[in-house]
Computed example of a mutant assay.
Amino acid sequence: MRRHYFIDSSDKFVETICQMARMVPPGRGRDGGQHGEGGQGQERFARYEIREEYGTGSVEVYQVMEHSTLVLFDVAFCDDVIFEYDMKSHYVGVTYCIDGEMERHEQGYEGFLFAQNHLFVSKSAEMKGRTCQHGGQRYQCVSLNMNSEHMIHLLGKSGIELWDDTMGRLERLTRRQYVTGGQLGEVVTNIFRSIFYCELPEKSKILYYEGKVKELLSLLVSGKLPGLENDETAMLLDDYEIRQIRLGHERLMENRGHPPTLNQLSKELAISRNKLAKGYKLIYGKTIYDHYRTTCMQDAVVLLSDLNKSVQDIALDIGYSNASNFCNAFKREFGVTPLQYRKIRLKNASGQSGTRTT
């Protein structure tokens, strides 16, 4: 079964959420606990819990600054949910996926899978397209929506000139990096995650979120996000090259322990060494083999949660020939050995007083 909804304004979005969810009394957080009292500023915040017939989870809507809406999604629908949107009022959208995935289609661009650590920046004009979230899949994201006609109130005259220039370059040169889900660096990732996991009282969150939104906008207008640097090679990446570079990452992960060299990858992918190296860093935020090692270490962290797996087993799973080399690499990455990390995680899990629930 599929549910279709049409969105043409922020008000229509809130109206649609109200159909699918019930408003939660002021002060109750996503974990069910009290996060401060209501009162002044409460009209700038609303939290909705998804009704059982639609699924589970919550949607939080904050009015931050003038003509800007910050939305935090933590939902899992029973059925496929499709939002058709046609924003006539020149909206700008910036969305970051915390976890999960959804299909996105925007007029004029190919559809793509929007997944964890992906950033989507809409064009600063009319927005038209659709999203599809498949039933049974949890989806968490932070979405900032602004009316571009009121951007000058947020950024000032000098800021709006920078914004127009940056959005122009994003449109002409590297926007497809974002539309296809460009991987982000730690600075930007931390901004979005600090917003999503903020545990301040509701009446304090507005001020905190406004500061984070301004920090994010400053990064956007400064061109410091991956893909907006003044790099001639980045400007020349086309859709084929982006796909080939992503395929190169898959090849690395398929050959753990014996990853192909840069020359071998370049030949297999039919892309020059220089463009492969610079394009990879543009998309993933790190050099090819730095990102390869980081990905292996992240996989090791997941495997360490399985108490039936020994350190030697995990070392072999992620491509190391012996546990000693793996332990040394893990300690360089995280500052502790794999066994120490496992003990810390177990201790934290046993001592945790509560967890975030949907």
Rank of each mutant, 00 (worst) to 15 (best):
104 R>P: 00
88 K>A: 10
86 D>P: 06
111 G>V: 06
92 V>Y: 08
117 N>Q: 08
95 T>C: 14
86 D>R: 14
90 H>C: 15
89 S>M: 14
100 G>H: 05
104 R>M: 10
116 Q>W: 00
107 Q>W: 12
108 G>K: 04
112 F>T: 11
90 H>N: 15
110 E>C: 06
112 F>L: 01
115 A>C: 08
108 G>H: 06
105 H>V: 09
91 Y>L: 08
112 F>Q: 07
89 S>H: 15
103 E>L: 09
87 M>G: 07
95 T>P: 03
103 E>T: 11
96 Y>A: 04
102 M>N: 10
101 E>F: 12
103 E>F: 10
102 M>T: 06
118 H>I: 00
99 D>P: 06
116 Q>A: 05
91 Y>G: 03
100 G>I: 05
106 E>S: 11
118 H>G: 01
99 D>L: 04
88 K>M: 10
96 Y>M: 10
91 Y>Q: 02
106 E>L: 04
101 E>I: 03
113 L>W: 09
117 N>V: 01
113 L>E: 11
106 E>A: 12
86 D>T: 08
91 Y>D: 07
89 S>Y: 11
91 Y>E: 04
112 F>Y: 09
86 D>C: 13
109 Y>W: 15
102 M>V: 06
109 Y>L: 13
116 Q>N: 07
104 R>H: 02
103 E>G: 05
93 G>S: 14
101 E>D: 09
99 D>R: 03
100 G>A: 04
115 A>V: 00
86 D>M: 06
114 F>V: 00
90 H>I: 09
89 S>R: 14
102 M>P: 08
108 G>E: 04
91 Y>F: 09
107 Q>G: 09
95 T>A: 14
112 F>M: 03
107 Q>H: 14
105 H>F: 13
106 E>P: 00
112 F>V: 04
92 V>F: 08
115 A>H: 07
86 D>K: 13
102 M>A: 13
92 V>A: 07
94 V>D: 12
96 Y>Q: 07
93 G>M: 11
113 L>G: 05
117 N>I: 02
89 S>C: 13
109 Y>P: 00
94 V>R: 06
113 L>Y: 05
87 M>D: 09
97 C>H: 01
114 F>C: 01
112 F>S: 10
104 R>A: 04
101 E>R: 13
89 S>W: 10
98 I>H: 05
91 Y>S: 02
115 A>Y: 03
94 V>H: 07
97 C>T: 08
90 H>E: 13
116 Q>T: 06
92 V>E: 08
88 K>T: 11
97 C>W: 01
92 V>T: 14
102 M>Q: 11
112 F>D: 09
108 G>P: 02
96 Y>N: 02
108 G>V: 06
114 F>T: 00
111 G>H: 09
92 V>K: 04
110 E>L: 13
87 M>H: 08
86 D>F: 08
86 D>L: 07
96 Y>I: 03
88 K>N: 05
110 E>W: 10
104 R>G: 01
112 F>H: 12
86 D>V: 07
114 F>G: 00
113 L>D: 09
110 E>Y: 10
118 H>P: 00
95 T>H: 11
114 F>K: 02
105 H>M: 08
97 C>Q: 02
93 G>K: 03
106 E>H: 07
95 T>Q: 13
88 K>L: 12
110 E>F: 10
97 C>G: 02
